[in-house]
Design a protein around this nucleic acid. Structure first.
Ligand SMILES: [Mn+2]
Ligand SMILES: [Mn+2]
Ligand SMILES: [Zn+2]
Ligand SMILES: [Zn+2]
Lengths: 167, 167
DNA sequence: AAGTTAATGAAAATTATTTTCAATAAAAAG
DNA sequence: CTTTTTATTGAAAATAATTTTCATTAACTT
């Protein structure tokens, strides 16, 4: 596992002049800076399909950027959420959990939340029906309430198969 | 405003022998007891359409049952949630918010959450489309994942009309 | 009426998250 | 490249919602 050091900065980051289509560009486009801690945090978020807590992200990112502080993780997660690049969830276990916004259509999914063991299941079934329903709902709601819709969540709560067996 | 005292107990609560179709019955049916603090908390929850926090409930219930403690409010809200009688929400303002489960079909609704001012808008449009979509989704998902679905939430995040104007 | 035990509330503890502030480093300017 | 500017960082302290503890109370049972 490679740890990120200051010496590697120029190797790991896009050059200055070059218009960067990646994260650096997104940050600077919003008036922010691309930094090594943010790199490390994004590396972690990009590498997983899990629903990480701030502490989870911290522990992972800390491996590749040991100087990182937990405060910076909280700040970066909030920043990314406000930028609309990160989804923040409450699955009922007392801490916020995060998931990088899907790039492609195929990644779009929602969640089954087991209220017994807090297990989370990603599902991406019924995308067609959902898309149709959501399209109409969003259009109608944004018109009726003059509300600009940027995002949505759908969660089903219940009991997972493992918890059904063990009772 | 009437405060609840021990003397009023028999007046406010269903008698012992009588099969109570109300909250007392529900509690006892789950093996719990109906108590004055729980009465007061339920009174508050039943009287409002707002999305109350634990502290909100405490302050209101405290008016009619001054002896009430905040701890009991937290415990009762968790109990009702586990009993499936109360919906617990995270609207992103750092505290849980609660809403009594709708009794009738007409009460069923979901939420628009303004990410700027945290205002919550109840909407119950598209109930037909939603019901159709959810029925199919629940059936399919519970079969595919062997997951027993008890509840669901749909939330749209965005910018409300007031916040759109003031920017 | 007496007994059993769940429920309560005050206070303390816990813990996720936020704030503070001096030090650092990213972007801009020279 | 060097200097300047200022956003960003991290350690520590603060905050605040929620949970735990435990002695007392009251709901239901006998
Ligand atoms: Mn997911
Ligand atoms: Mn509502
Ligand atoms: Zn489970
Ligand atoms: Zn608003």
């Amino acid at each position: 596992m490679e740890t990120i050091t200051n010496k590697q900065r120029k190797v790991n980051m896009p050059g200055r002049g070059m218009m960067s289509p990646g994260w650096g560009g997104k940050f600077r486009g919003c008036g922010y800076r691309m930094t090594l801690p943010r790199q490390a945090i994004l590396n972690v978020l990009q590498k997983t399909k899990k629903h990480l807590s701030a502490e989870d992200v911290y522990m992972e990112a800390h491996k590749i950027f040991p100087h990182l502080g937990l405060t910076t993780v909280y700040r970066t997660l909030e920043l990314l959420t406000d930028m609309g690049e990160l989804n923040k969830f409450d699955f009922g276990d007392g801490r916020a959990r995060y998931e990088l916004m899907e790039i492609s259509e195929e990644d779009h999914h929602h969640h089954l939340v087991c209220t017994k063991c807090k297990r989370i299941i990603n599902y991406s079934d019924f995308v067609d029906e959902e898309l149709e329903f959501l399209k109409r709902a969003e259009k109608g709601l944004s018109k009726k309430y003059n509300f600009e819709i940027n995002n949505h969540i759908i969660q089903f709560y219940g009991v997972c198969d493992k918890c059904k067996k063990s009772k």
